[in-house]
Amino acid sequence: MRAYWAVVSARLRMLLQYRAVALAGFGTQVFWGLIRVMIFDAFYRSTNAPQPMTYEDVVTYVWLGQAFLVLILWGVESDIRQMIRSGTVAYELLRPLDLYTFWFSRSLATRSAPMLLRAVPMFVVAGLCFGMRPPPSLAFAVLWVIATVGALFLACALTTLLSISLFWTISGEGLARIVPSLVAILSGMIVPLPLFPDWARDALDFLPFRGLVDVPFRIYLGHIPLEEIAPLLFHQAMWTAAIVLLGRWMLARGARRLVVQGG
């Protein structure tokens, strides 16, 4: 636990040092948020028919997306990729620590710091200037926090799985590039899931990716009735557990494969 905090605070300090970069990145995201809001505005004005989400809700949704963009912005940690490529990961496997837990907690730590650093100012700026609204009640706010923590764990489970897929070299590399894009759209980050065509909803609701964006964001908006939230959190947790188990299993297989292949 202490190791986790150490990494988080180190990352925070490092990010704060590159203040100009942080500011510029923030400016870019505000710009993007504005573009998206204007696009949605134009679409909503094109029709009088009622929609699964109101325009005001969509606006808040967009700014939540900018605040928590790091949840779907993945790359495989470059040194993990190096380790696997060069074979030195074999040394890691020899160590008396659980490599999966190590990679997972690392992922957790390196995601928490940028997430906090971007979310807080984005809430302030978007809330004051761009019409972002707070959750409708304290209950929703609390449940939203829980769902966001769950989303964080789910994201880390997925990225750790991606890292492990690198054991299967080429196919792993391809996956590492294609999957994040698919996740981006299937999670609801590009377009909110309620706006997707009805025939796609069943599949989208089943997949784990909604747990990253769709679930926590719509809890925040109060878009999901209180009694329906628990099953969604359960969905999030179950998928996280399943992906963690899959990851552990794949790591064991991958390690054996490495040893057999000779690195």
């Binding site: 696009i39 679409f43 029709t47 080429i170 391809g174 590039r177 294609i178 377009v191 706006l195």
Partner: peptide, 29 residues
């Protein structure tokens, strides 16, 4: 090939998003 395929998908999902929105809203002005 992998990089190009990845880039294809990463940029292509933008059009997918556009298509979804048009499917829902029918037109943009």
């Amino acid at each position: 090939l992998m990089l190009s395929a990845g880039h294809f998908v990463a940029t292509g999902i933008e059009f997918l998003g556009m298509w979804v929105l048009f499917d829902r809203f029918r037109s943009l002005g």
